[in-house]
């Protein structure tokens, strides 16, 4: 059985036929070749697969195909515009928030979702927003600093 899905990814409209038991993560990585979004655990614990869906950070390994019909999705590939990095990305670089980089796309998307709702978060709010994103390399400090510096207008 296949179903037809209509949704928007990184401001592009997409129509796609797929099986209803496909995960959003598979659709991104395998069907749309958007491999920036990563798989680390497949059970919603590591956050490497985080994307922004309808303004909220979600684990794309836990989202099934039918759920994305009509949705607006932003992935890490959609942050850079006209070859200019998003402030958030620049601050990640400036603060050394990236080591191996495997958690980075998910971190960026959790941070993006936080800042679009709450442009001036406290440190505690930042920690809360990325508490579902595991990073084994950085100890989080430089990631938190990068997000705090991006406060304000993120669009």
């Amino acid at each position: 059985m296949t179903i037809e899905l209509n949704f928007t990814i990184n401001e592009k409209k997409i129509t796609l036929k797929t099986e209803p038991n496909r995960r959003l993560l598979d659709i991104l990585r395998q069907e749309l070749n958007l491999t920036g979004t990563k798989e680390g655990c497949a059970i919603g614990e590591c956050g490497a697969c985080t994307v922004v869906m309808n303004g909220k950070a979600v684990n794309s390994c836990l989202v099934l195909a039918p759920q994305i019909n009509g949705a607006e999705i932003l992935t890490v590939e959609g942050l850079e515009k006209d070859q200019r990095l998003h402030f958030l990305q620049e601050n990640f670089l400036k603060h050394g928030a990236v080591q191996c980089g495997f958690c980075t796309p998910g971190m960026l998307m959790s941070a993006y979702a936080l800042l679009s709702k709450n442009p001036n978060p406290t440190e505690a709010e930042v920690k809360e927003a990325i508490a579902g994103n595991l990073c084994r390399c950085t100890g989080y400090k430089q990631i938190i600093d990068a997000i705090l510096e991006t406060e304000g207008d993120i669009k």
Partner: peptide, 8 residues
């Protein structure tokens, strides 16, 4: 390698 890692 930062650029490639923050852009996916």
């Amino acid at each position: 390698d930062g650029y490639s890692k923050v852009t996916g």
